[in-house]
Nucleic acid binder design. Structure first.
Length: 834
RNA sequence: GGCUGAGUGGCGAAACAGGUAGACGCGCCAGACUCAAAAUCUGGUGGUGGUGACACCGUGCCGGUUCGAUUCCGGCCUCAGCUACCA
């Protein structure tokens, strides 16, 4: 009998699945549904490495098991294909982003197909496809009509070298993370989405979803709900009011000064003549500094600021407080102004110390000569608040301010509105036109607003977005009035397409609607969503926001899009670097006595790092499929570590999984090991049922590594056995097939079945079959292991104790001593306490 | 600085609900097959001591609860991720 020829088997079954449309999404609606979704990839130019498919393999196992358990499964893949890297690649190669994207998608699809993933490829979609972004634009129109999309002059990250705005996440340490080009702040007209209107809504349903607690916490913190008060300080002689936001209105009596953000609009109005020069200098200096410099590590940096010459009246006691400006107050949080109570706020304390401003204690409990005290305590020096604790004092202070019309309780959020435009080519055009100084949304029957073909994808020389180059495209007619109009040259950010793709997957070829409402009702929500934790606060918050809006518009049936979320860990590879930081690939180094050296003898250091082409530590799935087979690769991806942990890649581990599959193959093909005869094989049967149980539980708990182990245990037992009942092996093939689907199909066929194993029923396990006839009881004397005894299952305590005491080694340790207490744990152990 | 998660053999890891720590795999060692090697198969493999049965130590560190702690509680150390003056 021929050996296990993975290449022939895998090619054969992949062709079979494609030809027979084995994984077409079922149309009947009588069965329960299961929607299992991967975070779809951005098809980059470098292709996949073994780190990417871990989540895909996991969801594929879930999808395959669910089909066998009788569910209608929606399991699909698509491409998040708009984005800057393709545009930059296009400029570099002097080709169109369309071409580059098509090429990259091809590569990705080929790599994924090789893995035998059971996607319904008829539902494949790409966000850069006009038939897709037509509906992204349609949703934008809905947001615009609801007043949730608006234009504003806002500071952005402008990269002069690239001639484009960058997203915050693309900028670190004041430079673009990809190229190292400098980034500066600049005010520009931008599209914004009013996600802040949904802050409460996004918090409200967070407890309902089955997500990792850490991710929920991150979203909560990102939204950053904060209860406090608005307090109005009059500026005498100016007829102006400074509104401050505070969470500590109880400490108002400790106010020794007021601080405005340097960019605060009132600054120029209240600054006195003799302070104007200093204030202007300070504001200029702050403007030069990047956001990063102002925030990161800034908490430890010395505080800066200048006095404006103005005073404001504290409404709680009528006292005058000097007004300063300082960059530790942020213009875009709260009201952009604070009152300072140095005694009970660390930042104010540092500032007051530096500029020698008064520090007035109003809450007992700390030593304000040493540090600010932020804890609770009885109030002092606070008039009507004296003696109250923090909570009561807050309430009392707010009540007083309310009566005087000088303030009120309020809630602010850390969450900012979403900057929703990019000055780039390769994104969805914002579907609006500008006419007579008005912005109008393009009617749905004229969507999509297609990207024009350009021969140059760079920004214009005067800094306009690339779309400004399309003169013909740019000029249009207002369909309402017939007047000439201009199209919008901004495009949407990459997050737009991924905000709703899970909805389009339900009905991806629909030309008349974004999705069919009936289909949406059947499939939503996504039952299981798997992807990296790096999307915790961006993609996952943005899509929840859109979904909430769509729900309010009655367009979707659920409040939340993703019922269960699971984060897969990051796979690391071993990288090698010499003293100068140059990377070496695995075959350029060798190990001698635990030390690594390059080919010419130079020492290199080995370390585990995130896989990347530039670190020469990637493993190519295609190579592994060729050498070991996709089934071996799939098994190792899941066996190497729990899904959430990622782990370190070792190709020898794939070889181990290959050996396991070789053993499975031999069981089925060598000699006449499989038998139709009834054979007494309790150990083997127990191993089988244990494996079924683990694989079954794996579908719920997503613990695939231990499921694979238990299948290995079964195969080890079966290999040792003289004969293996065919019925056992059939059940085993069923549970193996979601993990190693090609071999599963081949063996299923070998066992005489003519249909695909993909829809075979999932075997049941029998608790009774898991129980041993005799059980091993551990015996402890005084809490220390002293032996173990075999007793029949179901023995009573007395029998177990007698057996335990009869053990020779136990007797030795009991010798001449009195047993004070006897503890018997059924089926587990005996502890004889002396 | 804050929040979150994690520390178990040479390595990846397992341990259901407080009950025999290290399943399964990698690597390594020995044996079988082979002229030999590879592949495969069989056995062994936490450390120390002992010919041995066994004994002692061992789940980051210190302490606590318990007959019994990888698991629960308190304090600390290290690493990773996120966040960064949010009033």
């Amino acid at each position: 009998m021929a050996g296990y020829d993975h290449q022939a088997i895998e090619a054969k079954w992949q062709a079979y699945w494609a030809d027979n449309k084995t994984f077409a999404t079922p149309k009947d609606r009588s069965r329960p549904k299961y929607y299992v979704l991967d975070m779809f990839p951005y098809p980059s130019g470098v292709g996949l490495h073994v780190g990417h498919p871990k989540g895909y393999v996991a969801t594929d196992v879930v999808a395959r098991c669910r089909r066998m358990l009788g569910f209608n499964v929606l399991h699909v893949m698509g491409w998040d294909s708009f984005g800057l890297p393709s545009e930059r690649q296009a400029v570099k190669e002097n080709r169109s982003p369309q071409e580059i994207t098509a090429r990259n998608i091809n590569t990705f699809k080929r790599q994924l197909t090789m893995l035998g993933l059971s996607y319904d490829w008829d539902k494949e979609l790409a966000t850069s496809d006009p038939s897709y972004y037509k509906w992204t634009q349609w949703i934008f129109a809905k947001l615009f009509e609801k007043g949730l999309a608006f234009e504003a002059e806002v500071p952005v990250n402008w990269c002069p070298a690239l001639g484009t705005v960058l997203a915050n996440e693309e900028v670190k340490d004041g430079v673009y993370i990809e190229t190292g080009d400098a980034v500066e702040r600049r005010n520009m007209r931008q599209w914004m989405l009013k996600i802040t209107d949904y802050a409460e809504s996004l918090l409200a349903t967070l407890p309902e979803v089955q997500w990792p607690e850490g991710i929920k916490k991150m979203q909560q913190d990102w939204i950053g709900r904060s209860e406090g008060a608005i307090v109005r300080f009059e500026v005498p002689g100016n007829n102006r009011q400074i509104e401050v936001f505070t969470t500590r209105p109880d400490t108002l009596f400790g106010c020794s000064y007021v601080v405005l953000a340097p960019e605060h609009p009132l600054v120029s109005e209240i600054t006195t003549k003799d302070c104007q020069a200093a204030v202007a200098d300070y504001r200029a200096e702050v403007a030069r500094r990047s956001d990063r410099d102002r925030t990161s590590d800034a908490a430890d940096a010395p505080k800066t600021g200048v006095f404006t010459g103005a005073y404001a009246v504290n409404p709680i006691n009528g006292e005058k407080a000097p007004v300063w400006i300082a960059d530790y107050v942020l213009v875009n949080y709260g009201t952009g102004a604070v009152f300072a109570c140095p005694a009970h706020d660390e930042r104010d304390y540092a500032f007051a110390k530096k500029f020698e401003l008064p520090i007035i204690e109003v809450v007992r409990g700390g030593d304000i000569s040493q540090a600010a005290y932020t804890g609770d305590g009885p109030h002092v020096n606070s008039g009507f608040l004296d003696g109250l604790n923090n909570v009561d004092a807050k309430r009392a202070a707010i009540d007083k301010l309310k009566i005087g019309g000088q303030g009120d309780a309020t809630i602010t959020y850390r969450l900012r509105d979403w900057l929703f435009s990019r000055q780039r080519y390769w994104g969805e055009p914002v579907p609006v036109i500008h006419v007579d100084g008005q912005t109008k949304v393009v009617p749905v029957d004229q969507l999509p607003v297609q990207l024009p073909v350009l021969d140059d994808y760079r920004p214009t020389s005067d800094g306009q977005p690339p779309l400004a180059r399309a003169i013909e495209w740019l000029k249009t007619i207002d369909p309402e009035t017939g007047k000439p109009a201009l199209r919008e040259t901004n495009t949407m950010p990459q997050w737009a397409g991924s905000c709703w793709y899970y909805l389009r997957f339900i009905d991806p070829t629909n030309d008349n609607a974004a999705w069919d409402p009936e289909e949406e009702k059947y499939w939503m929500p996504v039952d299981l969503y798997v992807g990296g934790a790096e999307h915790a606060t961006l993609h996952l918050l943005y899509s929840r926001f859109w979904h909430h809006v769509l729900h309010d518009l009655g367009l979707v049936s659920t409040r939340e899009p993703f019922q269960r979320l699971f984060n897969q860990g990051m796979i690391h590879g071993t990288s090698f670097r010499d003293a100068r930081g140059k990377y070496y690939s695995r075959d350029e180094v060798e190990e001698r006595d635990g030390q690594w050296f390059g080919k010419s003898g130079e020492p290199v250091s080995a370390r585990r790092e995130k896989m990347s082409k530039s670190k020469l530590n990637t493993a190519d799935p295609a190579d592994l499929c060729r050498d070991y087979g996709a089934d071996s690769l799939r098994l190792y991806e899941l066996f190497m570590s729990p899904l959430e942990d990622g782990g370190d890649w070792e190709t020898t581990g794939v070889a181990g999984c290959r050996r396991f599959l070789d053993r499975v193959w031999r069981l089925a093909t060598e000699g006449n090991k499989l038998t139709d005869a009834i054979v007494e094989a309790p150990e083997l049967e127990r191993a089988l049922h244990n494996a079924i149980r683990k694989v079954r539980q794996g579908v719920e708990s997503l613990k695939f590594n231990t499921a694979v182990s238990e299948m290995m245990v079964f195969v080890n037992e079966a290999t040792k056995a003289e004969h293996v009942p065919k019925a056992y092996f059939e059940d085993f093939v069923r549970i193996l097939s979601p993990y190693a689907p090609h071999m599963g199909e081949e063996l299923w066929r070998l066992l005489g079945h003519s249909n695909s194993v993909a829809y075979a029923t999932f075997p049941e396990y029998d608790e009774a079959k898991l129980v041993h006839d005799t059980i091993t009881i551990a015996v402890q004397v005084g809490g220390k292991m002293r032996g173990s005894v075999e007793v029949p299952a179901g023995s009573d305590d007395a029998t177990i104790l007698a057996a335990a005491k009869a053990d020779a080694n136990v007797q030795r340790h009991l010798d001449g001593k009195t047993i004070r207490r006897e503890i018997v744990v059924k089926g587990k152990l005996v502890n004889l306490v002396l």
